[in-house]
């Protein structure tokens, strides 16, 4: 069944692009249902920082080769200290996306054993992809301040 039939609340952005807004606790169920109904390609998991609302938006992208349809399941979590359940049992590659989002945004995924250092190494500051992290200021304060090697 197509996503629109399964979830009548789904909104069609354009042909072949469906967006479902839902809440945190329903995601596992929806992803599972879609997986069983032909949406077998998990495209990616991405995270958008809506700093004004104080929320992170997690977007689960799924694609059906059969219906040629792309579904975005979007949920909102709090920016600080909120966590999400891992979906790595449904699709193994979600694990990697969760690792990245944990490192770059600081969202915690309960049940994922590989969270931790992934891309960065020894990063002491706040997760860099958050909107309140000013990369230009950071660069000016660190890299351009490192002294030149003085020759006598």
């Amino acid at each position: 069944m197509m996503a629109k039939e399964l979830f009548p609340e789904a909104q069609e952005l354009r042909k072949g692009r469906i967006r479902i807004e839902t809440t945190k606790d329903k995601v596992t169920e929806i992803v599972k249902k879609l997986k069983e109904n032909g949406y077998e390609h998990f495209v990616m998991l991405s995270c958008v920082d809506w700093i004004k609302d104080g929320k992170f938006e997690l977007v689960y992208h799924m694609w059906s080769y059969e219906y040629r349809e792309h579904v975005m399941i979007s949920i909102k979590v709090d920016r600080d200290g909120d966590s999400m359940v891992t979906l790595r049992d449904l699709f193994p590659q979600i694990e990697t996306y969760e690792r990245e989002i944990h490192e770059m945004f600081g969202v915690n995924f309960v049940g994922n054993p590989r969270l931790g250092e992934f891309i960065l190494e020894g990063w002491p500051h706040m997760p860099p992809m958050r909107k309140d992290f000013d990369t230009e200021k950071f660069v000016n304060e660190i890299y351009y301040k490192i002294p030149e090697v003085k020759e006598e």
């Binding site: 020894g122 990063w123 002491p124 500051h125 304060e141 660190i142 890299y143 301040k145 490192i146 002294p147 090697v149 003085k150 020759e151």
Partner: peptide, 22 residues
């Protein structure tokens, strides 16, 4: 030769970068 001569300074800078701090 410069690397041998100013080894301390190069090492200091490298460590600063590794720690992402000054």
């Amino acid at each position: 030769k410069k690397y041998h001569k100013y080894y301390d300074q190069y090492k200091r800078n490298q460590r600063m970068a590794y720690s992402y701090r000054l």
